[in-house]
Simulated assay, not measured.
Amino acid sequence: MSLFSEYLKEIESRKDSGLNPKPIDSANLLREIIAIIENDEGPERDLALKFFIFNTLPGTTSAAEEKARFLKQVILEEKTVAEVSTDYAFEILSHMKGGPSICVLLDLILAGRSAIAQKAADVLKTQVFLYDADLARLKTAFEQGNPLAKEVLESYSRAEFYTRLPNIDKEIKVVTFIGTEGDLSTDLLSPGPQAHSRADRELHGKCMISEEAQLEIQRLQALHPDKQVMLVAEKGTMGVGSSRMSGVNNVAL
């Protein structure tokens, strides 16, 4: 059985628990998905394309590396995907938030193809998750007189990655939910005994506080569709490490 077939089987089993398809972090699985996309007449092609665009984990996963590499090939017209234009490929890269996507953007900026390089620079100006090695490449290019490297660095100096973000609403309506009486700890939001599921954000989200609390939050959302639910407590104990991150993730979900 192929990895993609196993993934589809897993999706069906997750439906029984009310879970969406698990985000893809495996390079091997994504390579199979890309192969299906390149087969224009494959019966599962539309589904594969959807998973490639919308359900591949961003950041530094091996799947993200495969995704960024393929998007680079599309941009350079080495590969053709009817549904993914050059501009759309850049848009997808812009949502990948660092790691391999930054390497690809820098490659395109420094490759010397003016129209593509400018588009890559415009996207890079919006990115904030750069490693020292990425900044070193920009610095070297700037010192060698690359005008786009200078343009990107000047944009960073003006914090345009922040100042050009959409304005937040002038008014944000909230309805409060009391998380618990007394101390609200991150272990309540992300219980230690359920740590094994933290890598699966949606599954782990089901253990936040209690099933009753989650149903009450959903009831508040239904009663107040124009408001955001604010979790409140008398005091809070902030945990460390994964419990803190997973607790915040669960609140966001």
Rank of each mutant, 00 (worst) to 15 (best):
N28H: 05
I11K: 14
S17A: 14
D40T: 13
N39S: 05
P23T: 09
P23N: 08
I36V: 07
K15L: 15
E32M: 09
D25M: 06
N55A: 02
K50L: 06
I37K: 10
I53A: 10
F52E: 05
N20W: 14
L19R: 04
F51L: 14
P43Y: 12
D40M: 11
F54W: 15
I53R: 14
F54V: 09
E38N: 12
K22H: 08
P43L: 12
E41Y: 15
E38T: 08
P43M: 11
L29A: 01
T56W: 15
I34V: 14
F51M: 13
N55F: 06
I33L: 00
I33F: 00
A48Y: 10
K22S: 06
E32W: 12
L47C: 06
G18P: 13
G42I: 12
K9N: 07
N28Q: 06
D25A: 06
L49F: 13
S26G: 01
R45N: 00
L47E: 07
P23G: 07
I37G: 04
S17G: 08
I37W: 09
G42E: 14
D40H: 14
D46N: 07
L19G: 02
E12P: 08
P21S: 02
I37P: 08
S17H: 15
N20Y: 13
A48M: 11
K22N: 06
I33H: 00
A48V: 10
S17Q: 15
F54Y: 15
K22W: 07
A27I: 04
K9G: 03
E10C: 08
I36C: 02
L49R: 13
R31H: 11
S17N: 13
T56N: 12
R14N: 04
E44P: 07
R14M: 02
I33N: 00
P43Q: 09
G18A: 12
S26Y: 01
F52R: 07
L49S: 08
P21F: 03
D46T: 05
E38Q: 14
D46A: 10
I36S: 02
F51N: 10
G18T: 11
N20C: 08
N55I: 04
A27K: 09
E38C: 11
L49M: 11
S13A: 13
K50F: 07
D46M: 06
N55M: 05
K50I: 03
I33Y: 00
E44A: 11
R31I: 10
R45K: 04
T56V: 15
K50G: 02
E44T: 10
K9F: 08
P23S: 06
E12V: 10
N55Q: 07
L49G: 06
I11N: 09
A48K: 11
E10T: 11
R31P: 03
L29K: 00
E41N: 15
P43S: 09
L19H: 05
D46V: 05
N55E: 04
R45H: 01
K9R: 10
G42S: 15
S26R: 04
L19N: 03
K15N: 10
R31A: 06
L30M: 07
I24V: 04
K50R: 07
A27P: 03
E38P: 04
R45W: 00
I24G: 01
R31Y: 10
F52P: 04
